[in-house]
Design a protein around this nucleic acid. Structure first.
Lengths: 347, 347
DNA sequence: ATTAGCACTCATAATAATCGAGTGCTAATA
DNA sequence: TATTAGCACTCGATTATTATGAGTGCTAAT
């Protein structure tokens, strides 16, 4: 009989597939027909179960580590399972997850590390957090400080309480008094705009406009130098140690996936950044991560917003055999809580 | 014959002990008499070597993992080896290690992470860095910024370019203009003093002294709140992944030492802080670390100074079987380079 | 003090034997 | 036609068995 690999599962197959994957997520052992029908009280004989499993294997949802062992989910299988979860998950439920909890215990600046740490603690995997793209943040206050020689430190504070610092080197020395005037000018003129807006239009406007402030040009020079190269978003990963406690992550070559992730944080950064255009939760399973040096891992991530604009992302990194059912809501409402907090702060 | 465990080794024993330990550090395998005499071209028979090894074992410098295996160094053995290294190492050699290299590539603030990262890269173990105790740093500039409600953010910049931020909550709202006056007052009065001095004497002096500035008291209230609880030194650990590549660190229970270190950074912090009173390089081997949850690990660390005062510490964390001969100079001159840089910056 | 010689030890590796949870397939059954 | 019982077969995991060889300690000779 010709099997179409993309044919739609019937209800029984669907239920059984999800149950098998659930069982595997919980136990970590290949699922065999006999013990499985028994444990889940299916009114089916093991033989029938074997037939169904055989079909699901031919459809690429399951595989056998070796002939005559039980079945294990494929990436496609996990994907099916996760899509089932997603379709039944209510994203609109009000979680009484209080963002005040976040705001209270978090030092303005440390919020990103703290959230990553929290995600890792609650999930028992690794928590990841990409700080908001500085370009999207709105400046509130700018201060210039004379360092040695002709170096100037520009400190800017965003509405959300992030502190950005940037050292610039000027061609000629400027006095601290001048810098002081510049600071005032910049705070007045740039405050309330995002770095993106400033770079795109405000600079131009200020340059052409006449101003009573004769330090205008020095001030703009400094600000342009400082804001020029866009600061990268910071990425923090916490709770690697959790992953080391998972046997399957420490096994031989799997360990290398982990080391790659730690050493090349840019891989993760890229993955999270690629999500900034979309909203809500995204789940990447196994090869879907799209990096051959990382195998057997999954990422559950969510963007978070200031107002209506996604500015950053956060999530959980763990083994493909991950407790998605628990992680999905965790990541979802953490994203919402962070969005809520940042949005409130930026008003 | 009665053996005194503390008797002094003769020259031959000493040379052989050091060679055995060197061999073990290189190969990681228990050192046996036959292959050892051969490899090192000792004009001794294996039998004689066995006798000497037997003696060294009775003196606690060596041990056998099991009867009839080769010898492996004990902590005492490593200690002997390291002391030999230390006594022949010339701490006064001018290393043409250019601290400008440090200064150039390092963003003021990031210096601590960067140094830790550098230590880990060069050593192939983990690099650790304890930032200067804020109390010992000299303030240069203070800025107060109005946040929402009656919260104020105090940003202080130290002479070495560190940026400290602290959020304080006031009992009543203060205007941004008032804060501005306060900032000026605080910068003028506190600039040039260390936080320690400020807490110990300057506050008291300013409180009693009359001042023309009528915001004096508000200013001092804020500063005292902010400087009150001493900020902890930040500790950063980089290069854990290097340790994961070392087979003996990943073995069963040894992995736990590692996880303990990662999870409880305070253990390391304590160890490094305990060194702040002394100068120069210190090596802790195995149980000398004094924490039963950490076994088979060593720390080579050095304090670093601003001027003549040790303010922080840095070092390398790795397995007891560590390449001390390479790590000792690395840590020594990194300490000196950081001292040099910070001292220069703070002038 | 050193060394040759020898019996002994024991981790490691290789080989074989057993076990059991699992499979696929066929023929009987509802 | 879908389900099931029965059965031979597979194969990873576990345990037992047997080399192998680099190592030791000890004794007696040099």
């Amino acid at each position: 009989m010709e099997q179409n690999k993309d044919r739609i599962l019937n209800d029984r197959e669907s239920a059984i597939l999800n149950a098998i994957i659930y069982e595997y997520i919980v136990t970590g052992k290949p699922v065999g027909s006999r013990s499985f029908v028994q444990k889940y009280s299916f009114s089916l004989s093991p033989a029938t179960m074997r037939n169904i499993m055989y079909d699901l294997e031919k459809l690429d949802y399951l595989m056998q580590p070796h002939t005559s062992s039980g079945r294990v989910p494929t990436d496609k299988g996990y994907r099916y399972y996760v899509d089932s979860l997603l379709s039944s998950y209510d994203f609109n439920t009000e979680h009484h997850f209080d963002e005040k909890v976040l705001a209270r215990e978090l030092q303005l600046d440390k919020i990103f590390d703290s959230v990553a740490k929290m995600l890792s603690t609650v999930s028992s995997y690794a928590g990841i957090m990409l700080s908001p793209r500085p370009d999207f943040t709105v400046l509130k206050f700018i201060e210039l400080i004379q360092l040695e020689n002709s170096e100037v430190l520009m400190i800017s504070i965003t509405r959300t309480g992030m502190i950005l610092t940037k050292k610039v080197t000027l061609s000629e020395r400027v006095t601290q008094d001048d810098l002081f005037l510049c600071s005032r000018f910049l705070t007045t003129e740039l405050g309330g705009y995002s770095i993106e807006e400033i770079k795109d239009t405000i600079f131009l406007k200020l340059r052409t406009e006449k101003s009573s402030n004769d330090r205008k040009d020095v001030a703009l020079d400094i600000a342009q130098l400082a804001l020029n190269e866009s600061n990268d978003s910071a990425i923090s990963i916490e709770g690697i140690e959790n992953l080391l406690r998972i046997p399957e992550m420490v096994e031989a070559d799997r360990l290398n996936s982990l080391l790659n992730i730690i050493e090349e944080k840019n891989i993760l950064r890229g993955l999270l950044e690629s999500q900034l255009n979309s909203e809500g939760v995204r789940i990447l399973i196994g090869d879907e991560i799209g990096n051959p040096s990382i195998t057997g891992c999954s990422i559950v991530s969510s963007s978070y917003k200031i107002g209506n604009r996604p500015v950053g992302a956060l999530g959980v990194f763990g083994p493909t055999r991950m407790d998605y059912e628990k992680i999905l809501p965790l990541v979802d409402y953490t994203g919402k809580a962070v969005s809520g907090l940042l949005t409130k702060l930026s008003k």
